[in-house]
Amino acid sequence: MKPSRLQDGHQAFDPPAQSTMPTAQTFDAGEPLKEIVVRNNLAAAKLPEEAIMREVMAAGYGEEDAFAIKLSLEEAMTNAVRHGNRNDPDKRVVVRYRVTPQKTVITVRDEGGGFIPERVPDCTLPENIERPCGRGIMLMRAYMTEVSFNESGNEVILIKVNQS
């Protein structure tokens, strides 16, 4: 048996390398981010989603903002599990987040090799419409205040400013 890196569904990851750290303009100094590490499957992916949405609702976000965060998080988790970690059950997804009444910051990191966002095919082109392409990224960009990726392309940083 391979030893699990999880302890009680939590932790055991090395601190992120410098390149995965949030940039100054995207993150405020403030409370540290909470971290949830889950196994690489879509059922486990629901755990951080539920935890974050509970905080979002409690922090007084409006329906539209909550919709945006939920949708984007779902897209990010699906991308991490399927595309980043390629459905590998031995891999993990690391979600870090901070919800304040002003702003929600979420990072989702997988253990894959990363991708180059600019090279994702444009799914609005007729020739790509039936291909799996960047539709999820497109939705995240439309719904969140800011969407960025770390240099290695295995972490997405989602920011939503509370507009209500």
């Binding site: 949708l71 897209e75 699906t78 039936e130 799996p132 539709r135 999820g136 497109m138 939705l139």
Partner: peptide, 17 residues
């Protein structure tokens, strides 16, 4: 339906095809 993700859109595209 109140929420729809890109995976749901992919499903509709497959169905349409």
């Amino acid at each position: 339906v109140d929420h729809l993700s890109s995976a749901a859109l992919g499903m509709l595209i497959t169905l349409n095809k």
